[in-house]
Structure formats: structure tokens, C-alpha cells
Amino acid sequence: MLLNARRVDNAEGVPERILLAIEDITERIEAQTHLRASETQSRELAERFRFLAESMPQKIFTAKPNGDIDYFNRQWIEFTGLSFEQIRDWGWLQFVHPEDVEENIRRWQHSIDTQEPFYMEHRFLRIDGQYRWHVSRAVPMLDAEGKVLMWIGSNTEIEEVRQAKVEAERASRAKDEFLAALSHELRTPLTPVLMMASALESDPTVQPEVREQLG
């Protein structure tokens, strides 16, 4: 309860009575308590997320509903050699390979507009000047009404996987070319023999027994 008191004076300014007002503020106190508890819980969850993100080997990021990046974990800072202030919001486009930028923007904007998960394989510039292939994924976190609260994403390097795939494709092409050449070489020596046999088979001067064997 909240007690309010106010003195009431008469015309001569002499205190005459006191007015008391009692207000039930139970709901207000409960609401404030709930709000403080919710804020505390939110801070604890945020701290746990940051701790988890900083501990993971993958590169982690979060973004606002409009797509502006508002967090990169330390793996990103170490990989690019850039500060968070340099790559926040849409500044991260500076380390995307020039050939991947346009498609990257298109897919990211599409996910923002449709709330569909983001996925792309693209190249990022490492601190040593080398571009490395990554697979990037991001999903939206929604509230009870289905509105996007934030985006959570990860970027995993797949450079070795891509290189292995390229080598496997190169080896497969080399094998196919070798087999085609071998098949051609095996068929070519028989061509004159087959042509001669065909000519003898149609030659009327050749004895019937020989033509029958050739056929």
C-alpha cells in the first residue's frame, strides 16, 4: 500500500485537518519486480550467448531485424584483422570476394524480406590476403507474434573441402580422357583389318568357303 498525507489549513492558516489517501500499488510493484527480473534474465542470457559464441571455433554473428550486423565474435576479428567498428552493419562486405558480393547482397536481402533462412558458399578475405571459402548460414529469432527479433548466423571455413572437390573433379576428368584415348587406340588398329575383311567378303573371286569364314 502507498499512503499519502496532506495537511489542510483553515482561512487563518491554522492546520485544521489531515487528508489521507491510501493506494493499492500491488500490481505496480509486481510489474516492476517482473520487469527487473526479466531484464536480469535477458542480461544473463546475452552473457551466456556471448560466452558460447566466443568459445566456438566457428565464426558467429548476429544482426538486427533489418540485417545490420551488431555482433561478430573474436574469431571474425582475428580472421579479418579488422575491428568490429570497421565491419559492423554492412561493413563486412569489404572482406567478401568481389565476384561474390552481388549475390551475397541479393540472398541476404531476400532472407531479411522473407524471413527465410540464409545460406551461401562464398569467399572471405583473410588477414594474410588470401581468400578462403566459407559456408554461411543464418536463421531469424521470432517473437510470439512471428516478428523478427534478431538474426543469428555462423560462418564455417570449407576451403579444404572445396579444394578436395576440385581435385576429385580434375582426377575424374583425367580418367575419362584416358579411357577415351585408350578406347580409340584399341579400336584404330583393327580398322584396316575390318576393311580388308569386308572387301574380301564381297570379292567374287574369293572362294565361297573363305567368304563364309569372313562373314
Rank of each mutant, 00 (worst) to 15 (best):
R17P: 03
I29D: 07
P192R: 01
M1G: 13
G81H: 04
F84P: 00
D70E: 12
S183R: 15
S55P: 00
P57K: 06
L3G: 00
T62R: 08
Q115G: 02
Q109R: 14
P189S: 07
I152A: 14
I29K: 15
F49V: 08
S172D: 07
R123H: 05
R36G: 11
P117S: 12
E23T: 09
L190M: 14
D68Y: 05
T188L: 12
P65L: 01
V166N: 08
P192C: 06
T33A: 09
R132D: 02
F95I: 14
S172C: 05
L125S: 00
M56D: 11
S38Y: 11
R43Q: 11
T40W: 10
R6N: 09
M196G: 02
R7S: 09
H97C: 01
A197I: 05
H97F: 09
D24H: 11
T33S: 11
H34W: 14
T188P: 04
A53V: 01
V210N: 04
T33P: 01
I69K: 08
I29H: 15
V8W: 12
I127A: 08
V14A: 14
N73E: 00
F118Y: 12
R107T: 03
G67D: 06
I112M: 04
F79R: 00
P204V: 01
I105K: 09
V101L: 01
D100K: 01
R137Q: 15
E39G: 09
E201F: 00
L179G: 04
E103K: 15
P189A: 15
E102Q: 13
E157F: 11
L214Q: 00
W108N: 06
A199Y: 06
I22W: 06
L182P: 02
K165Y: 14
G67F: 00
E39I: 10
M150R: 13
Q109T: 08
E145F: 08
W151A: 10
